[in-house]
Amino acid sequence: MPSPRRALPLVPVLLCTLAALAVPRAAAEEGRGLAGPPDDGGLSTRVARLHREAARATDRYEADARRLVQERARAGKLDRLLARKRQEAQVIREDVGRYARAQYRAGGGLPVTAQILLSGDARSLMAGQRALWNADLALQNVIDRSRRAERRLAEERRKAEERRRRLEKHSAELDGTRQRIRSTLEEAQALLQSRADASVAAGSCRGPVRLEQPGPPTPGTWVAPVEEYALSAGFGQGGVRWASRHTGQDFAVPIGTPVRAVGEGRVVRVSCGGPFGIEVVLEHPGGFFTQYAHLAAVTVDQGQRVAAGQWIAQSGTSGNSTGPHLHFEVRVTPRSGSALDPVPWLASHGVPLG
Rank of each mutant, 00 (worst) to 15 (best):
A202E: 00
H325V: 03
G239S: 04
A122F: 04
R269L: 14
E279S: 13
L167Q: 08
G350N: 14
F288H: 08
G248T: 07
K77M: 05
L192D: 05
V332E: 10
R145C: 04
L139K: 05
Q103H: 12
G107A: 11
E30T: 13
I116R: 02
A307P: 11
F288Y: 13
N320A: 07
Q70T: 14
R105F: 02
L167V: 12
Q249C: 11
E155Q: 07
G234M: 05
A201N: 08
A172M: 03
T177W: 13
G108C: 07
R46S: 08
L34H: 06
V223K: 10
T17Q: 06
T113E: 12
G207V: 10
R182F: 01
V262Q: 09
H284F: 11
L43C: 08
T45Q: 15
Q103G: 11
H325P: 03
L8Y: 03
A307N: 03
G220D: 09
G33Y: 02
I278N: 12
T113G: 00
G207I: 04
V13A: 10
T317L: 14
R241N: 11
Q304G: 00
Q237G: 04
V142E: 03
P334Y: 04
S315N: 00
V298K: 08
G277Y: 08
A138L: 14
G354D: 15
I181M: 07
Q304S: 02
R180V: 01
D40G: 14
A196G: 11
L153T: 03
R180S: 05
L125C: 10
E29W: 10
S318Q: 12
G263W: 08
P342R: 09
Q302C: 01
Q179R: 12
Q103K: 13
P37K: 13
P24A: 05
R148A: 01
E187C: 08
L191G: 06
V300C: 06
R335K: 01
P275M: 02
W133C: 02
D144A: 13
E155Y: 07
G41R: 11
F288K: 10
R331T: 05
G220K: 08
Q115I: 03
Q193W: 09
E71T: 15
D59Q: 15
R80I: 00
V306Y: 03
G120I: 05
A233M: 01
Q179T: 07
E212S: 09
E88Y: 02
G120R: 15
L18Q: 12
P38M: 04
L346N: 04
E30P: 02
A75S: 10
M126R: 02
S44F: 11
A293C: 13
G220M: 03
Q115S: 04
P214K: 13
L50K: 10
Q90W: 06
G203H: 10
Q237W: 03
